[in-house]
Amino acid sequence: MNKKHVAAYAAVAAMFGIMGALVAVNKKDPPPLTTVMAPTGGKPHTAVDKLYSQSLNDLAGAPQPLAKWRGKPLVVNFWATWCAPCVEEMPELSELAGHDNGNSFNVIGIGIDSPSNMNEFAAKLKIAYPLYVGGMGGTELSRDFGNKAGGLPYTVLIGADGQVIKTYLGKLKFDELRADLAKLKS
């Protein structure tokens, strides 16, 4: 190889390096995938009925009927301790739940994880909303709400009437969630 070829290869390599850096700098997180479920003529969605018929253990191991959340808008967050975006969004979700104190909506978390992992995690962070152990059954429950791939985090916004208002796959955009919650108040 002569010096001309080396210089040409170096120039091409430098150009690709600059292009890669520009792409990395301008890369934005993809927006979460949101879905609006079809209305059911005022009746609760089947997935909501299934959710409210469940009894899941809290972190102390006591079974808790989820029907107690019926009648007020509910944010249901499916998460796991090993899911980085789940862990990243939990402090802000906790702040949102704590700020409202259940006055106009409630937030619950259903962990797709083991009770020991969830307890260890909860001991480190102060979460202002109830956490329930869903295990692998929680994955099936999230699939009932349209999460066909079983991806996490997966969040479901349920109206007071049992209608699924919206689902969010991926890390929450809290401006969007706050706007959706504000629409429920009006």
Rank of each mutant, 00 (worst) to 15 (best):
Asn103Gly: 00
Tyr129Ile: 03
Gly20Ala: 13
Pro30Gln: 13
Asn77His: 10
Gly17Ser: 13
Gly109Cys: 11
Lys50Arg: 07
Pro63His: 02
Ala84His: 05
Thr35Ser: 15
Leu22Glu: 02
Ser116Lys: 07
Phe78Thr: 10
Met118Gly: 10
Arg70Thr: 13
Cys86Ala: 06
Pro30Met: 14
Gly41Phe: 03
Thr81Asp: 08
Ser94Lys: 05
Pro73Phe: 02
Phe16Arg: 00
Lys68Cys: 06
Tyr129Arg: 00
Glu92Ala: 15
Ala47Ser: 07
Gly61Pro: 13
Thr35Glu: 15
Phe105Ser: 11
Ser55Gly: 11
Thr81Cys: 03
Ala60Asp: 00
Asn57Arg: 10
Ile112Trp: 07
Asn106Asp: 13
Ala84Asn: 06
Gln54His: 14
Tyr52Ser: 03
Ala67Tyr: 07
Leu93Arg: 00
Glu88Gly: 01
Asp113Gln: 01
Lys50Trp: 02
Gln54Gly: 09
Lys124Gly: 06
Gly41Ile: 04
Pro32Ala: 08
Cys86Pro: 00
Pro32Lys: 01
Glu88Thr: 01
Leu125Ile: 07
Asp58Leu: 11
Thr35Cys: 08
Asp49Cys: 00
Val23Gln: 03
Ala13Arg: 06
Glu92Lys: 15
Glu92Phe: 14
Tyr52Lys: 01
Ser55Cys: 10
Gly41Asp: 14
Ile110Val: 01
Gly71Ser: 02
Thr35Arg: 09
Val76Leu: 09
Ala128Gln: 03
Leu66Arg: 12
Lys28Asn: 14
Leu125Phe: 10
Cys83Trp: 00
Lys124Val: 14
Gly102His: 04
Gln54Cys: 14
